[in-house]
């Protein structure tokens, strides 16, 4: 791409008005052409890189086990696949939730992400508490905040019982705004 000439010729200072306006014109044409060239390359690149922002993931229900496998009053870690993992995702395609069986037909699926900054909370069964390893957040068995910096209760994922299976709906990692 031709850049506007920055080295004035020796005759620059005696240039005729016609020559000056021609120079101005050439400079503008070059800048405009350069801009168009840059846009042709930049727009698809920006779209390619920003694509994940606009991707709508089709959430799916994933079975995490038979209803009988979960005892009433207990909370257990369950693993499942993300909604549409990329072929090379490997183990990063896994997700987890803390599944609590409240009674015979009520389940709660808690996100494992602490609402403070997203670290994975651990369930301490005997203490009936979730504890976060990062900054000391603690939650009660119902996910409400018991102690520490978390601003809101543990997030919940949609959960249902279908054909004797407990199913969790895949969901984005909860990004807490508060």
């Amino acid at each position: 791409m031709n850049q506007p000439n920055t080295e004035p010729s020796s005759s620059c200072c005696q240039a005729s008005p016609a020559e000056l306006s021609r120079r101005k014109f050439l400079a503008r044409v070059s800048i405009a052409a350069g801009g168009i060239g840059a846009l042709i390359v930049a727009l698809p690149v920006a779209g390619f890189i920003l694509a994940p922002l606009f991707k709508r993931t089709q959430e799916v229900w994933r079975s995490v086990g038979k209803v009988e496998a979960f005892k009433v009053g207990e909370t257990t870690a369950v693993q499942y696949e993300d909604a549409s993992p990329l072929p090379w995702a490997g183990v990063t395609a896994h997700s987890a939730a803390w599944l609590r069986r409240v009674n015979a037909d009520t389940f709660i699926a808690f996100s494992i992400n602490c609402t403070h900054l997203g670290c994975p909370v651990r369930w301490l069964a005997e203490a009936n508490l979730f504890m976060c390893p990062c900054h000391g957040g603690v939650y009660y068995e119902d996910g409400t905040v018991a102690a520490g910096p978390p601003p809101v209760p543990l997030r919940r994922y949609p959960v249902r019982v279908k054909n004797g299976d407990v199913e969790i709906q895949t969901a984005p990692i909860p990004i807490i705004k508060k």
């Binding site: 922002l53 995702a89 990063t92 990692i173």
Partner: peptide
């Protein structure tokens, strides 16, 4: 723009193939 930034960092909704 927080949600957008977070999704941009993760490369999607969750950690996965696009993240690294």
């Amino acid at each position: 723009i927080g949600q957008w930034l977070a999704h941009f960092i993760l490369g999607g909704d969750t950690v996965g193939g696009a993240t690294f």
